[in-house]
Amino acid sequence: MPNEPLLARYPKTRPELPPRFREIYAAQYLDNRQGATTAASAAQRLERWMHIRVAEDVRAAGPAATLEIGAGTLNQLPFEPAGAAYDVVEPFEALYRDAPQRGRIRDVFADIAEVPADRRYARITSIAAFEHVADLPALLARCATLLEDGGALRVAIPSEGGLLWRIGWMATTGLEFRLRHGLDYGILMRHEHLNTAAEIEALIADLFARVEVRALGLGRQLSLYRFIVAREPRPGVAADWSQRFAA
């Protein structure tokens, strides 16, 4: 049965940023994505766990047709073997335009709705992106329709909503942000991270018949990141969500 109380939360509304945050938002976003500060660089080293987990299937079995959601600066590509079609969904061209891995990309889409309806992927991947998506059920339903038979959704996310994750960002990026700007990083986090890890997991479990979860830490709540592999989309659920959350 669908989790109606959870589905009723969507689509979510992103909180507005105060004026001072809006002034520095673009620069802060690029700094985080590019590891340009001490805290961001340290975070990227920890995030290698997510990149490695997402790519371990193709490292073992060889390259496969892939669609990456929220590809950012294309920093997943160094972990992926070349040799198969690799498409990405990324709305911010400035992030990937000059990326060294740009030549490996077949097609770039600003939105998953732009992916041709007849295209199919052996794997759809995402690293630290699903927590940002306001209309996550619609995105997940679209992923389900784009997977080929036997394909897998491979998603790595921060453990948003968990104790260790909150302590981690408050003591690193949050502290650095306050020292640099005199502002509360929690306001920026609430603007960016609309979905908790528990919500993401629950939606994926509703949509897919086979779901595996691993965590970097001591269980889900005392973890920094989670890695989810989902297979066998439930056709009725995907169709229902596609209709219910149609733009």
Rank of each mutant, 00 (worst) to 15 (best):
L188K: 09
D206V: 00
R190E: 15
E192P: 05
F177C: 12
A113P: 09
D118Q: 13
P81V: 06
L146H: 15
G35Q: 01
R220P: 05
G151Q: 13
S159A: 15
Q243S: 14
R166F: 12
E160K: 13
A42T: 11
D240R: 14
R120P: 03
E176V: 00
F92Y: 04
E90H: 03
P18A: 07
E4M: 01
Y185W: 11
T13L: 13
D240Q: 11
F109Y: 14
L194F: 01
V54H: 10
D135S: 05
A94E: 12
A152G: 13
L30E: 07
D135Y: 05
L17V: 03
R48V: 14
V229T: 15
S242Q: 11
T145L: 07
E47W: 03
E4D: 14
Q221K: 15
L95N: 08
H51Y: 11
Y25F: 00
T173Q: 15
S242R: 14
E201I: 08
Y10E: 10
Y121D: 11
A117P: 03
L140T: 05
V213I: 15
L203N: 01
P2T: 00
S242N: 07
G168K: 14
I127A: 15
L163M: 08
Y121I: 04
L179Y: 12
V89A: 11
E93T: 02
C143F: 04
R119Y: 06
S223K: 03
L163G: 12
P235E: 07
G182I: 07
A144L: 13
L218K: 08
S242K: 08
L207N: 02
F177M: 06
A42E: 09
R33D: 05
P11G: 07
A36L: 09
P19C: 02
L222Q: 05
Y86W: 06
A64H: 07
Q28I: 07
E4N: 02
G186R: 07
Y96C: 03
V115Q: 04
S159L: 15
E80S: 08
R9P: 04
L179S: 10
N75M: 01
I228G: 09
R220W: 04
V237G: 06
R59L: 12
A8G: 10
P11V: 03
R104A: 02
L207G: 00
A42I: 11
I24L: 09
G72H: 07
R231I: 02
Q76M: 01
W165S: 14
D149Q: 15
R53D: 10
A60M: 12
G217N: 06
L7K: 06
D111M: 02
I69C: 08
E23D: 08
L67M: 01
P137Q: 04
L6K: 03
T173R: 15
A202R: 02
A138G: 12
A55M: 02
D111A: 11
A110H: 10
A26K: 01
V211L: 01
E232Y: 01
M189K: 08
L216W: 12
Y185H: 14
L222G: 06
L140H: 04
R59S: 13
A99K: 14
A122C: 14
A110T: 15
L67E: 05
L179K: 11
R45I: 05
E4V: 04
M189E: 14
R120E: 04
I52M: 08
G62E: 04
E148W: 11
E199H: 03
L147P: 09
E23G: 00
M189G: 08
A239R: 13
